[in-house]
């Protein structure tokens, strides 16, 4: 078997076998874009972990305040506008996603000014969303008193009737009715009520706080999402500066960076769809 080298030489046509031609892109995407996709997959799992934790803690709590009762204020001192403000926030985010799509399209056409303009619009959208969130948090913390440790939004588990200061009976309520424990001169001022159903019928009680996990989960999860929006805005800003300075014109893969940051931005919108579902709708 000494002369197998000559045998090997006889085969000049190279048989690569099944299809793989090497340095090809099996998923039709460069490694940078693939990495972004897989990073988003991991991030989606982090958010899933959070939202599943929310569901678990909600399932293990006796009561849980209704979202349409909690989120019913609107800037300008308007009350009784359930879910209207958060719908507005959702729109802001959707619009910023749309402007991002436009930026990517202009990037694909190598239109420097167009890409920069639409990136700018996206940044404005992101900042608007953050502003809305800041107002929502401020309202909840300052005006309504919901913090990481206290949740003034409770839910009655029995029927009952409120007792006024002078001892007379006030408004009736049914089991499952939401209430907010009010503050008076910075002091909690829970109202007195008489229980009208269940084993404790006839007793007089004060309004209790709602499950504190409600507030804590709200701040941690929307905070984590807000952090993503914030970092997205920062990255968008850097990319916009790069676009304006013309870095991408010279690069081999052109405006792929715009596309990648676009993926991240849409992902932030995508997560909001589920945060919106879990916190505000269900």
């Amino acid at each position: 078997m000494a002369d197998h080298s000559t045998v090997a030489e006889a085969h000049h046509e190279v048989d690569y076998g099944p299809a793989w031609k090497g340095a090809d892109k099996p998923l039709k995407a460069g490694y940078g874009k693939l990495m972004m996709w897989y990073f988003l997959l991991t991030d989606a799992f982090t958010f899933s972990g959070f939202l599943i934790s929310y569901a678990t803690l909600r399932a293990s709590s006796l009561t849980w305040p209704d979202s349409d009762f909690v989120f019913s204020t609107f800037p300008g001192g308007l009350h009784h506008m359930p879910l209207i403000f958060v719908t507005l926030m959702t729109f802001v985010l959707i619009v910023s996603s749309v402007t991002m799509v436009r930026a990517v399209q202009e990037g694909k056409r190598e239109n420097k000014n167009g890409a920069a303009f639409w990136l700018g619009m996206t940044i404005i959208g992101g900042l608007t969303f953050l502003g809305c969130q800041a107002w929502e948090w401020t309202n909840l913390i300052k005006n309504e008193g919901m913090t990481l440790f206290t949740n003034p939004f409770g839910k009655h588990t029995t029927d009952g009737v409120y007792i006024n200061e002078d001892g007379s009976e006030g408004e009736h309520f049914a089991a499952g009715a939401n209430y907010i424990v009010h503050r008076h001169h910075g002091q909690w001022a829970p109202k007195k009520y008489k229980v009208l159903s269940g084993p404790e019928k006839g007793q007089v009680k004060y309004q209790a706080f709602g499950p504190r996990e409600f507030g804590a989960l709200f701040f941690v999860i929307t905070g984590f999402h807000g952090f993503h929006v914030f970092s997205g805005v920062v990255i968008l800003f850097i990319i916009m500066l790069n676009v304006i300075s013309g870095v991408y014109v010279k690069r081999r893969n052109g405006y792929e960076m715009v596309e990648k940051v676009g993926l991240y931005w849409h992902f932030v919108d995508l997560v909001w769809v589920f945060v919106f579902l879990v916190f505000y709708l269900l």
Binding site: V14, G17, A19, G22, A23, K25, P26, G30, Y31, L34
Partner: peptide, 12 residues
């Protein structure tokens, strides 16, 4: 990404 994209020719 390396295993997916950077295989040499013939390495299916």
């Amino acid at each position: 990404t390396t295993v997916l994209n950077l295989r040499t020719k013939g390495m299916s």
